[in-house]
Design a protein around this nucleic acid. Structure first.
Lengths: 256, 256
DNA sequence: AATGAATGTTCCGAATAATAAAACAGAATC
DNA sequence: GATTCTGTTTTATTATTCGGAACATTCATT
């Protein structure tokens, strides 16, 4: 039960050429729209190596070359969509996030756990910051704490041992006992609150999303500035709205 | 202008190990949640080869192993999001698609061209069929025709020569001259219609989406069954709604 | 428990494929 | 028109992948 969740031990074995390809790909994703020599500068590889890997990726259609600059292609979208639609609930959550965001006029997200990290799967909010696909420490997120609160003690202990409880801000929970108490409270009240534990000036509320057979699907969350996220708003208003949406997902899965 | 759009000549050179990795990855994406031996069956590689490539991908975090079955991981989401947010307009289109879908209660999509194909980038609709990331022939889509109508004759000719005009249904345009006439009409009226050219029983309407400096961003489209998509609905009602949304995207880009 | 079948994992020599470095071609810059 | 930069190709060397088989482990069945 507590095994096989976190990332296994780093292994130097396997296909080192593949590692090289993905190292180049990740660098390209960071610095999108970049030339071969520029990419060479940013990696530890030689120009001919980057050239060969990049042209291979371009030939496969995963990378696009336009006017001498290389870009990540949409072909990855098809692959990532496979992960995003693995469970029907993920797709249902997409709509809930959007409606939640529109109705509250706040930023809303749906988060899922993968390898002991919180992954932003769906999001509503301003154009500028996308977050989708980004990964964050579970213990620093309201949604992350919701997910942790669903795990048994052994799994949580393994998480703490593996991922650690790094301080992201001054408010981040870094003590296992404090975390345990917090998780207990979350289980009691059915929602989690984040008080600037992930980013200064940011509060958030999150609730668990279940399937009709009570499997945890992920967490639904709303976040915003401390100025607007008063205690009243956070504890009295938002949890109800979030529970509504989480319930809708469940119902959609059951009868939709 | 007409160069560098379609996929270049297939090249057997480059890194063949990388090709192998992506062949395995694509097979995995097809048959998600599969075991190593099953994946070996589905590919032309030996078990040890699949094993090595797959465990490497798992170690990198791009593939997830749970209970002996392998899955595509969310790490691809971060990469694909790079492509999806390359232009601010793509993000703006996401909201427009959703609103358009809600308001019309129809399926709505935002489509972009890549390598002479139409890629579904955003979508509103039923849970079951996702389509996102899928690629379709431009000449068989309303949105595809909208995009083609923005290109100069040379580029369209190159597209026809490279991608061809395959018949997807009985109604698909397969004649270059017919296509040219259609594109001319689309330019005139400002929207494109698809009469079961991509799928029997399906009609759709699409309009171009421009940036504030009149660059083509992609196409916004609504589709549904012929029964509901009457001539009146398709020609009198939907184009106005679509133009509205396309205009909103443009305004959002211009003034925030 | 014991057996058997299937799957996951490791090992190894042989063969292949990736690598770096340098040379070349082509474009852009001054 | 010379120079510098980038993209591309070539080649000999080196490192890695590969396949096959052996081993380990799990699972189902009796």
């Amino acid at each position: 039960m507590s095994r096989d969740r976190g990332r296994g031990k780093r292994n130097d074995a396997g296909v080192s050429t593949t590692r090289k390809t993905f190292a180049i790909l990740e660098t390209l994703a960071d610095a999108d729209g970049v030339t071969i020599t520029e990419l060479t500068r940013r990696t530890e590889f030689t120009k001919s190596t980057v050239y060969r890997h990049l042209t291979t990726l371009a030939d496969l259609g995963y990378v696009i070359e336009r006017d001498g600059a290389y870009y990540v292609g949409f072909r990855f979208l098809e692959i990532s969509e496979q992960a995003r639609t693995r469970r029907r609930g993920y797709t249902a959550a997409k709509r809930s996030v959007f409606e939640l965001g529109k109705e509250t006029d706040e930023r809303a997200v749906f988060i899922v756990e993968e390898e002991y990290e919180g992954v932003y799967v769906h999001r509503y909010g301003s154009l500028s910051d996308t977050m989708i696909g980004k990964r964050r420490p579970l213990h620093s997120l309201a949604s992350g704490k919701v997910i942790l609160s669903e795990w048994d003690d052994d799994t949580v202990a393994d998480f703490v041992a593996t991922a650690g409880l790094d301080a992201i801000t001054d408010n981040t929970i870094t003590d296992p006992d404090t975390l345990a108490a917090e998780l207990e409270q979350i289980r009691d009240q059915g929602y989690a609150v984040n008080n600037e534990e992930h980013m200064d000036g940011l509060r958030s509320v999150a609730v668990p999303v279940y399937t009709p057979d009570d499997d945890l699907l992920g967490a639904l969350s709303v976040f915003g500035p401390t100025s607007r996220f008063t205690d009243e708003y956070v504890h009295d208003d938002l949890p109800n709205r979030l529970w509504d949406k989480a319930g809708e997902i469940r119902v959609t899965l059951a009868y939709g």
